[in-house]
Simulated scan of single mutants.
Amino acid sequence: MEVVTCGRFQQQGEVGRFVYGRSYLANPRAVELEKFELPLRPGTFETARLGGIFGSLRDASPDAWGRRVIERQLERVALSEVDFLLNSPEDRAGALSFGTSPTPPAPVHRFNKVLRLDLLLEEARRVEQELPLSGVQVSDLVNPGSSMGGARPKNVVEDEEGLWVAKFPARGDRWNNAAVEGGMLRLARECGLKAAVSKRTHVAGQDVLLVRRFDRQRVDGGYHRHRMVSALTVLRADEHPQDRSKWSYILLADELKRWVGDPDEDLRELFSRMVFNALISNVDDHPRNHALIAAGTAWNLSPAYDLTPSPQASLERHLAMEVGSAQHRRATRLNLLSECGRFRLSKEAANHLIDTMKATVTARWRGAIKDCGGTDADVTAVERAFDSEGFEYTHYSV
């Protein structure tokens, strides 16, 4: 496992510039940071998008929880993106490292152990509630692999199987998140999706969900790090509401044809995930919750992650990303089918896929949650996320 310096990034005002190092370009194992915005070639790349931060660099920044802990650690707010990159842990999501010296940082060899989850859980609770820390270093609480996640308290832990993102209970949870999210990952696999591996553990009277990191491969002496970019980067989009026109499964399908090694396989997988999110009312399916990963030179769709049902009072469901041309973000069969050709699926094949997945979700969502430790109360709490009558509606009043 070798860490090498690949280039230099500079930000001046709202403009960012990146250049690959000559020694890196001469390395026969060199790979690009992202396929089109930062292709592997000499010269200076410049961007004014995202406040001057290239998408692949932004993807290495900590998520909302990590930012919160860094702000507490530094006792500062209003930090810049570069501040977050330089002050987040070395073992962040993906393969990038950051520093102010041309000498690359050393690989990380030590990780929090699963046996320490009780201490990490307590310190996460104190950070969340803005209480004084009890002695554990606050830097230990910054989650290295959380840049594709959200605001939920979490940390990265290691056991004999490898590295896991530990997702802790959060204030305001209305159900056992470890059981429900774990159940959805299991249900996704039962529906034929490539979903992240997870397991539930019980710590200090609470359930914690462990999700295996798929951007790491265990090897003798450590881990190989895989490159990773979010769909936000692939779509050249921003998180601001005014940029939501680019939040689209259809546009992402078009980009996959340019990015991945086997478009047919990944397009079918993406369509299936879109259907699954519609069937479980996962309305948090924004582009940060989709990613591409490169274990070697080729990019592919990463395993699915952050699959969470959202109970809805209305029969009408809207996903975070556009799913079709018929009704934009509405989660209906009609809309899902409206652009199935962009996923290289015939109407017949797409309908069959929807029928099969819908039958599995209806038959198994309760059991999947209970198989992961959920109770009858947890099932009741989320039941309005499933089997929506609106899924089969073919028209809506405006």
Rank of each mutant, 00 (worst) to 15 (best):
N177L: 09
E255N: 13
R212S: 10
R268V: 14
V219Q: 09
A188E: 03
N155G: 01
K257Y: 00
A237R: 04
R258Y: 15
A196S: 14
L256V: 05
W259I: 12
V157H: 08
H226G: 02
G162T: 10
A237F: 03
D254M: 12
S248L: 00
S245P: 01
A253C: 13
L235S: 13
A195D: 10
L209M: 04
L163N: 11
H226A: 13
A195T: 13
P169R: 06
L193E: 10
D262R: 13
R268Y: 02
G192T: 11
R244T: 14
W164I: 06
A170R: 15
V197F: 08
E255G: 01
S245L: 12
V208I: 13
L141W: 13
K154G: 01
N155L: 00
S230N: 03
E190A: 06
R186S: 15
D266F: 01
P241M: 06
H224I: 14
Q242F: 12
R216M: 11
G150P: 01
V260A: 02
W175I: 06
E181I: 01
K194I: 07
S230C: 00
P263A: 05
Q242G: 06
L141E: 00
L251M: 13
E181S: 04
L251T: 05
K257D: 05
E160H: 12
K154C: 00
H224W: 12
Y223F: 15
R236A: 12
V229K: 00
D238V: 09
D220T: 11
V229Y: 00
T201V: 15
D243V: 00
P153A: 08
L256Y: 11
G150C: 07
A151V: 14
H240K: 15
V157G: 11
K167G: 03
R186E: 15
R225N: 09
D140M: 12
V260F: 05
S230P: 01
I250F: 01
V142K: 02
K154A: 02
S230D: 11
A204C: 02
D159E: 10
G183I: 01
E190W: 09
N177S: 07
V234I: 06
S248E: 04
V203P: 02
L235M: 08
R213F: 02
A237K: 05
L252M: 12
K257S: 02
F214W: 01
K257V: 06
W247G: 07
E160S: 13
R268S: 08
E255F: 00
E181A: 00
Q242H: 14
A179H: 04
R225P: 04
A166V: 11
H202G: 05
V197K: 14
S230E: 04
R258G: 04
L163C: 03
K194Y: 06
D243E: 14
L187R: 04
S245M: 08
